[in-house]
């Protein structure tokens, strides 16, 4: 690797190539199993059939996916606002820390999925209960990440700014919030990974539109191929959301050294 640019583009290629090869291997194995054992398509449709049927049904699938994606994104947006506010409050005030932090931790013992029926009872069958459930589901990861990030602020930098006359508000904006960014984004990535699943589970309980409704319908019609198709679409949408967050992370932190974003060692 004499040319660093060449080296890094080669590494980028390897980064995408390796998982793509693994994935291709799995898909081939799947196709082989289906063909060799002549599995019924209602039990396990082959990859070819899944792609074919899903594409054929795109006019029904697309609006369902769009609905679910909206719920996931809005839910995360709500979670971000509330989680950051709570994290800052806990970080800011001793009273808030004493009274809220134990509750935040304890809230993790609540099986949020089990709240889905309740949320539907309270908010009806529209998109609101799904947004609420996604927010509940993703809130914790973002809040804890942000909180840890705030606490990771360098005490020397804090002292230094204090000797320059900085007040608490200035310390928050100039030291603590920027310090929290990396861990905020780590939390957000976890949240994004859960968001669509949370929306779909909420839709299982009762909804008019969405991937959850689509999957339930396909299952009732014994269209296992379409259930698979919806799962693949969910995975792809999650990947897209993840990619958007990763991009935002890069844009928000241009100051990170390359080795920090690409843990290569």
């Amino acid at each position: 690797m004499s040319n660093p640019a060449e080296g890094s583009s080669g590494r980028t290629l390897a980064r995408y190539l390796a998982p793509a090869l693994v994935l291709a291997g799995l898909v081939i194995a799947w196709a082989l199993v289906v063909a060799l054992f002549a599995v019924e398509p209602e039990v396990l449709p082959g990859p070819g059939l899944v792609v074919e049927s899903t594409w054929a049904d795109r006019s029904a699938l697309a609006p369902a996916a769009w609905t679910t994606l909206q719920e996931a994104v809005l839910g995360i947006a709500v979670a971000i606002v509330l989680a950051v506010l709570l994290a800052v409050a806990i970080d800011w005030s001793r009273t808030a820390r004493r009274s809220l932090y134990p509750l935040l931790v304890a809230s993790q013992t609540i099986p949020i999925i089990a709240l889905a029926p309740l949320v539907v009872i309270w908010f009806g069958f529209g998109q609101t209960p799904k947004i609420v459930l996604v927010a509940l589901f993703t809130f914790f990861a973002i809040a804890v990440g942000t909180l840890q990030g705030l606490a990771s602020s360098d005490p020397d930098s804090m002292d230094l700014l204090r000797t320059m006359g900085a007040g608490r508000r200035q310390l928050l904006w100039r030291v603590r919030l920027p310090s929290a960014l990396p861990q905020f984004f780590t939390g957000l990535k976890v949240a994004v990974a859960y968001s669509l699943v949370a929306a779909i589970v909420a839709e299982f309980v009762g909804a008019e539109q969405g991937l959850g409704v689509y999957m339930t319908g396909a299952r009732n019609a014994l269209r296992t191929d379409l259930v698979f198709g919806a799962v693949v679409v969910t995975a792809l949408l999650t990947l897209v959301l993840f990619g958007i967050v990763a991009l935002a992370e890069r844009l928000a932190m241009p100051w990170r050294r390359p080795s920090q974003t690409e843990a290569d060692w």
Partner: peptide, 14 residues
């Protein structure tokens, strides 16, 4: 007073 801590405390995002 102007103060310089034992470690440099430079802010990485600036």
């Amino acid at each position: 007073c102007a103060f310089m801590p034992q470690r440099d405390g430079l802010l990485p995002w600036r």
